[in-house]
Amino acid sequence: MASRPQARPLSPHLTIWKWGPHMAASIAHRVTGVGMALVGVPLFVWWLASVAGGAEAYGTFRDVFTVASGKLNIVGWVVGIGLTFAFFEHMATGVRHLVLDTGAGYELKRNKIGALACPVIALVLTAAFWLWMGLR
């Protein structure tokens, strides 16, 4: 005799959950990881190829990311600063996830503070890094 299937509980959908900083921090961790892979890896390969290609090839690469003959290349600086911010954001959210993996920081207030601190930390570290690079 065939029995009727039981009504199974539905998994909560995104429309049910109240969005908070902890969700944004988790999404930012994934986005920055993908961004560094899609932009950083080809950029690293270009740098390696330019180093292997000789002085002229490396000069072209360097001109994109530095002030060449008094002319600032905005695209290179935006990519460089963007990758730096992505790196520090990914690092900060990674440390946050590491702390959460130990079982600590799940209290609502502490979780919210940790999630909000990640972009602030990334912004401060990015600014400090580029100021340090400019002073060298």
Rank of each mutant, 00 (worst) to 15 (best):
R4Y: 13
K71G: 00
A52S: 13
E107I: 01
Y58N: 07
R110Y: 03
V45Q: 01
A68H: 15
A122E: 08
V34E: 00
F61K: 01
G82M: 03
L125D: 05
C118H: 10
R96L: 13
M1R: 12
V78K: 03
A2N: 10
G105M: 06
L100I: 11
H90F: 10
P21Y: 08
V31A: 14
R136C: 01
H29T: 00
H29M: 00
A49K: 14
I27L: 10
E107N: 07
V45F: 08
L38R: 02
T84P: 04
P9R: 02
M133A: 08
L131T: 05
G105D: 07
G53Y: 09
Y106E: 01
W19K: 09
G94Y: 12
Y106M: 03
S50L: 11
T84I: 05
K18I: 02
L48M: 15
W130T: 09
V99A: 14
H22M: 04
V64G: 12
T84F: 12
H13N: 05
R8N: 06
G80R: 06
Q6R: 12
I81P: 00
W47M: 15
T32P: 13
I81M: 03
L10H: 12
A128V: 06
A7T: 13
L135W: 09
W46E: 13
G33H: 02
A52K: 09
G53E: 08
S50Q: 08
T32D: 04
L10R: 14
W46A: 13
V75T: 14
A104M: 04
V64E: 05
F61L: 09
A24P: 00
Y58V: 01
V64R: 15
V79W: 04
L125V: 07
L116K: 13
M91C: 15
G35D: 09
L83R: 08
L116S: 10
H29N: 02
R4S: 12
I113T: 07
D101S: 14
W130K: 05
L38T: 10
M91E: 11
G70L: 00
V45M: 08
L72N: 01
A104V: 11
G114N: 10
V95F: 12
A86E: 12
H90V: 00
